[in-house]
């Protein structure tokens, strides 16, 4: 299977209805993943620190028009959350906030990172896009990676769905991975929101963005994510549904075009799919996740407002069992912490 990095080639792969094509893609992706990753699976968990957000993204459960309870964890509450997650064995943590420069400024993030350093060996952030200097400060403090999704690379569509806050600025967001790379971040995670724009077009743009980052910042470890647009409370927004077959092909294409880049699959996706896709290119998965603020230790689960609904509710132990059953080698940490200079 030799797809080309072009709109026509990607589109024809997606539109191809023959199960043979899907299988061929999967076999190729599986072989490459074996070659470059063996059967390792990196595990991580998200901790949502705050759902305050200055952006109005029409598709998101945290957007600033949504009438949800806005919470921001205090330092003590953050410590509690981290202790809880750490007890499950998780060493890689992804700290998330809504995009609020006012409510969760860099000082707040730095406090959270400091707390994380007491519990975790790998710290990544998925927060509001920042300047190079800020990323550098966070890197020196001990942050290894940042995650930022362009959501869609189509400018027109981007303007249609991002109606408020700094996120309205397409170019600023686009430049975020580069600013983080220049600051010295070890890992950078990119992605698109599947279903938001034209899939083949967004895939091509994402892959080209990654190619150019690889060329200019070759020392960074890159990874890709493909969250699928899902229903949020009270919003019927899904212009393009991406079925499981298309989703599988997308994962495979990413692996084929980027044999050495990590591919992430979160608990957004159901167990059955996750368990099969680990064979076809996925190399990082979250486990035991809670996607609401304070979700591990605060309040009543049914009263919480998650950013997205979790479909895979398995605990870390369940996931470990599943991975061992399928002859995978779960990896909690790739390295021991050393000072980031």
């Amino acid at each position: 299977m030799k797809p080309l990095l072009s709109y026509e080639s990607i589109q024809s792969v997606l539109k191809d209805t023959s199960p043979g094509t899907t299988e061929a893609l999967a076999q190729e992706a599986a072989a490459l993943t074996r070659q470059y990753f063996g059967r390792t699976m990196s595990l991580y968990a998200p901790i949502y620190l705050s759902n305050h957000c200055s952006s109005f993204c029409t598709y998101c459960g945290f957007n600033n028009r949504q009438k949800i309870k806005r919470i921001k964890l205090s330092l003590t509450e953050i410590q509690n959350e981290m202790r809880q997650v750490s007890q499950t064995g998780i060493e890689n943590i992804l700290l998330l906030t809504g995009e609020s420069y006012a409510m969760t400024p860099i000082s707040y993030l730095q406090d959270a990172v400091e707390a994380a350093r007491g519990h975790f060996t790998g710290i990544s952030l998925e927060v509001h896009p920042m300047e190079t200097d800020e990323y550098r400060a966070l890197y020196r403090q001990g942050v290894d990676g940042i995650t930022v999704y362009q959501e869609t690379y189509n400018r027109k569509r981007y303007q249609e769905v991002h109606l408020g806050g700094k996120k309205k600025n397409y170019d600023y967001r686009l430049g975020t991975p580069e600013r983080a790379a220049r600051a010295g971040m070890r890992s950078i995670s990119l992605g698109i929101l599947l279903g938001l724009g034209d899939t083949a077009e967004d895939l091509l743009a994402l892959f080209q963005h990654l190619r150019s980052l690889e060329k200019n910042y070759p020392a960074v470890e890159y990874s890709l994510s493909f969250p699928r647009l899902r229903q949020i409370k009270g919003q019927g927004l899904a212009p393009q549904t991406i079925d499981d077959i298309a989703f599988t092909k997308i994962i495979c294409l990413a692996r084929i075009f980027f044999p050495r880049v990590g591919i992430n699959l979160s608990t957004r996706e159901p167990p059955r799919l996750r368990d099969h896709l680990i064979e076809c290119g996925v190399t990082r998965m979250s486990a035991g996740s809670k996607t609401s603020v304070g979700g591990y230790t605060l309040a009543d689960p049914s009263a919480q407002d998650p950013q997205f609904d979790i479909q895979d509710n398995r605990s870390v132990d369940d996931i470990l069992k599943m991975l061992k059953q399928r002859d995978f080698d779960p990896v909690f940490t790739d390295w021991r912490p050393i000072p980031n200079i």
């Binding site: 199960p19 299988e23 999967a26 076999q27 077959i245 599988t248 064979e279």
Partner: peptide, 8 residues
């Protein structure tokens, strides 16, 4: 190797 996408 064994089929990977039959499940779909």
């Amino acid at each position: 190797s064994s089929p990977l996408t039959e499940f779909l």
